[in-house]
Simulated scan of single mutants.
Amino acid sequence: MKAKKLPSGNYRVQVVAGHDENGKRIVKSFTASEEWEAIKLATDFACRREQNYDNNMTVAQAMEMYIDSRRNVLEETTIRDYNQVLKYRFKTLMNVKVRDIKPIQIQQAINLEAEKVSPKTVKNAYGLLKSVLKMFNADINLNSVKLPKLRKKEKELPSFEEVFTIVKGTEIELPVLLAAWLSLRIGEVIGLQFRDIDKETRRISIRRTVIRTDEGLKVREGCKTEKSQRQLELPNYIFDMIMAIEHDSDEDFIVPLTRKALYSRFTRLMKRNDIKMTFHDLRHLNASIMLMLGVPDKYAMERGGWSTDSILKSVYQQTFSSERKKIDKMIDGYFNGIILNSGNVSA
């Protein structure tokens, strides 16, 4: 849980305590002079509330309570995903009482979902359902429940040269290069501001993203994970493109497009050229190129923010080592070669 420091110097934690007859959330506040004390008061309340649930509670009511109990500790994107499950998945289970639910009912619900959505979506929804049943001590053995198999998708991606030829000179050339060359996620691309660029070192800091929440799109300081916050050296071609963009403030966004606008314009342009490709596929294209160039995993994961290494800080400290500079030059050489051959001489 997160505690907010008040002007008085005290700390306050708010917990959703339920809903009134109109469906509006009832929020209970816990205030104390010390942060840990406010968090403890709120945690104790949440635990008591979870333990004293109604024995006649339905799966939908239990899932809603589960989501609310974690609203202050999970990412807003995760809460949004949970609410999507509550709203759209396992509809045949939602009015079943937790105490009465049977494995066969869950299996039947999974079968129905498997006809409509991907195995990954079913797996994620089932994971939430299992957590809810566990929290509310449902007397049920789920060992017999089977999920649809996750199938590895073999997708044929175009070459970067094909993609660049299509987007060159368009309004989405820069965001495409940021994704395909520097391996930025779409939220990171539209979250970039001019203040993120160090003009002297020509490095860009990836430290902000645009996320989807239940309240809509939100600019969040910080990336998908701590591992995703990174610094990258800007190739001259991309640096010059950014510097040529007129802006009034360092807090202006480099790519002034919404997530939906960028995504739809890219997919529409690809479709017009008979290419089936999403914007996120540009990161896959980037990973494939680094594999082709023989880039060591350590540097590939660091560039793309994929690192799962627990000593992440030591990796960041070595980001601009002489070895890393060799890797950057090798990758830049590949992309620059294609751009130069296309008729651009300023790369």
Score class of each variant (00 low, 15 high):
residue 220 R to M: 14
residue 84 Q to K: 11
residue 59 V to G: 07
residue 176 V to Y: 02
residue 98 V to S: 09
residue 83 N to F: 06
residue 279 F to T: 00
residue 145 V to W: 10
residue 112 L to V: 14
residue 171 E to H: 14
residue 241 M to K: 05
residue 52 N to S: 15
residue 2 K to T: 13
residue 294 G to W: 03
residue 44 D to I: 11
residue 122 V to A: 09
residue 319 T to M: 00
residue 262 L to Y: 06
residue 231 Q to S: 12
residue 129 L to W: 01
residue 295 V to S: 02
residue 42 A to F: 05
residue 187 G to S: 09
residue 156 E to H: 11
residue 194 F to M: 06
residue 255 V to Q: 01
residue 333 G to T: 03
residue 274 D to H: 01
residue 313 K to I: 07
residue 223 C to T: 15
residue 258 T to K: 02
residue 72 N to K: 13
residue 55 N to D: 09
residue 311 I to K: 14
residue 203 R to A: 06
residue 183 S to A: 07
residue 45 F to T: 09
residue 129 L to Q: 07
residue 68 D to V: 09
residue 334 Y to K: 08
residue 229 Q to T: 11
residue 255 V to C: 01
residue 4 K to D: 14
residue 275 I to E: 01
residue 146 K to A: 12
residue 285 L to V: 02
residue 289 I to P: 01
residue 143 N to K: 12
residue 231 Q to D: 06
residue 111 N to M: 08
residue 312 L to H: 09
residue 63 M to A: 10
residue 274 D to P: 06
residue 339 I to F: 07
residue 119 P to V: 07
residue 95 N to Q: 06
residue 235 P to S: 11
residue 120 K to S: 12
residue 29 S to Y: 08
residue 218 K to V: 12
residue 161 E to W: 04
residue 242 I to M: 02
residue 74 L to V: 13
residue 166 I to G: 09
residue 294 G to P: 09
residue 260 K to P: 01
residue 71 R to F: 10
residue 209 T to G: 03
residue 123 K to P: 01
residue 278 T to Q: 10
residue 333 G to W: 00
residue 152 K to V: 10
residue 26 I to G: 07
residue 39 I to V: 05
residue 43 T to V: 10
residue 108 Q to P: 02
residue 156 E to V: 05
residue 73 V to W: 05
residue 242 I to K: 00
residue 265 R to L: 00
residue 8 S to T: 15
residue 116 K to N: 14
residue 291 L to I: 12
residue 29 S to L: 05
residue 303 R to A: 03
residue 39 I to C: 09
residue 43 T to K: 15
residue 263 Y to S: 14
residue 73 V to D: 12
residue 158 P to C: 14
residue 274 D to S: 11
residue 147 L to I: 06
residue 234 L to I: 04
residue 236 N to T: 15
residue 336 N to L: 12
residue 249 S to M: 01
residue 22 N to F: 08
residue 293 L to F: 13
residue 212 R to A: 08
residue 59 V to P: 04
residue 163 V to N: 03
residue 141 N to A: 06
residue 255 V to Y: 03
residue 39 I to H: 03
residue 306 W to F: 10
residue 332 D to R: 08
residue 339 I to P: 00
residue 175 P to M: 05
